[in-house]
Simulated assay, not measured.
Amino acid sequence: MKTAILFPGQGSQKPQMLHELVQHPAIAETLSEVSEVLSLDVRTLDTPEALQSAVSVQLAILTASVATARALQQSGLEPLAVAGLSVGAFSAAVAAGSISLPDAVQLVRFRAEEMERMYPAGYGLSAIVGLSETQVAKLVEAENSKEHPVFVGNINAPRQIVIAGSNEGMELVLQKARAQGARKAERLDVPVPSHCALLQPVADSLRLQLQSISVKDPKPIYLANVTARAVRTAQGVARDLADNIAHGVRWYDATTVARELGCELFLEVPPGHTLSDLAQENLPEIKAHTITPETFNRLLNLAKNEATS
């Protein structure tokens, strides 16, 4: 069974997430490697207090995801494709062998610090469920202004759209979405306006940094955030890592491409479960599961046994 590993983004975090990973040598090695790069114990970043910071959140998610993916890969899993949502793209790039973990840590720390510096308050993300991309785009176009900017962000499913921008601009769109019959229209636990033009300066800086590090062709196929294309070159990975912060993520399209490539099993690494839920909902013919300490061996065996059957 061809497998895709899914890497969650900001919003999936939870306290103690780095203390609840599977027991595996790759986990301990990864925690130590990240701690050395940061010059602090990375496990201090998953307290409720630390997780108030986007920097701690993004670094903790990167660490948990890469550690678990390494545990799977060192245990014999060879995924056909990897896909990461937002900051999860950096985890996917590490798992694909495109960038080193130390470089990913430095890039993610810079990315998160700049996001917080530019927008310390008053901005974020919201989700609208029950309206189409076209309907949400019309609402956003009507309310977007210089004073209260708001943009279409991620397309998680045909009727699950994320918007990004100022609190005031998002609230105007959310109110109209509810009036048009949205089943859900609410703020997400992300206090920065990811995946919109407000963060173009961060994308420009990341592009320069990526030019100065070693980026390699991905070994598993890397599924891009911005274009939802199957990427097989170092240049394509670098472009997506830089650009995704300032563009919407076409997540639904990316998972559809994974299925078209032949992936039948989707495994989401910690700390999230949203991506596996979306995959199962959007692609009911596939199997989608979340990796936990309790499911690790069973799902690893499922992937390996199906691959050889």
Rank of each mutant, 00 (worst) to 15 (best):
Val215Pro: 00
Asp253Gly: 09
Ser12Thr: 14
Leu188Lys: 02
Met1Phe: 10
Ser132Val: 01
Val37Tyr: 00
Leu206Thr: 05
Pro218Phe: 10
His289Val: 12
Lys2Met: 09
Pro218Ile: 11
Phe296Asp: 03
Tyr119Lys: 00
Ala254Lys: 13
Glu114Ala: 15
Asn301Leu: 13
Glu168Ile: 11
Glu147Phe: 04
Arg229Met: 12
Thr68Leu: 05
Pro8Met: 11
Glu113Lys: 10
Ala185Gln: 05
Ile286Val: 15
Ala89Asn: 14
Ala203Asp: 12
Ala254Pro: 09
Gly130Trp: 06
Ala96Met: 08
Ala50Glu: 07
Ile99Arg: 07
Arg183Asn: 01
Pro25Asp: 00
Leu62Lys: 00
Glu168Cys: 07
Tyr123His: 09
Ala185Ile: 01
Ala26Thr: 02
Gly248Phe: 14
Val22Trp: 01
His273Thr: 14
Gly272His: 09
Arg187Thr: 02
Val226Trp: 08
Leu223Thr: 09
Lys146Asp: 06
Ala279Asn: 12
Ala164Val: 03
Asp253Pro: 02
Gln106Gly: 05
Leu172Pro: 03
Gln175Asn: 15
Ser32Gln: 12
Arg259Glu: 14
Ala182Asp: 04
Ala69Leu: 01
Lys184Val: 11
Val190Leu: 02
Leu62His: 05
Val87Trp: 04
Val192Pro: 04
Leu59Trp: 09
Arg117Cys: 06
Leu62Gln: 00
Asp103Thr: 10
Ala121Gln: 06
Leu210Gln: 13
Cys263Asp: 12
Glu264Trp: 00
Gln160Trp: 04
Leu77Val: 14
Ile5Tyr: 12
Ala164Arg: 03
Leu59Lys: 03
Leu299Gly: 11
Ser65Asp: 03
Gly97Val: 08
Val269Met: 08
Ser214Phe: 05
Val136Cys: 03
Pro220Ile: 09
Arg298Gly: 02
Tyr222Leu: 11
Ser205Met: 07
Cys196Val: 08
Arg250Tyr: 09
Glu186Leu: 01
Leu18Trp: 12
Leu101Gln: 13
Glu49His: 14
Asn301Asp: 15
Phe151Ala: 07
Glu171Arg: 01
Ala121Pro: 00
Val37Arg: 05
Glu114His: 08
Ala137Lys: 11
Glu268Gln: 13
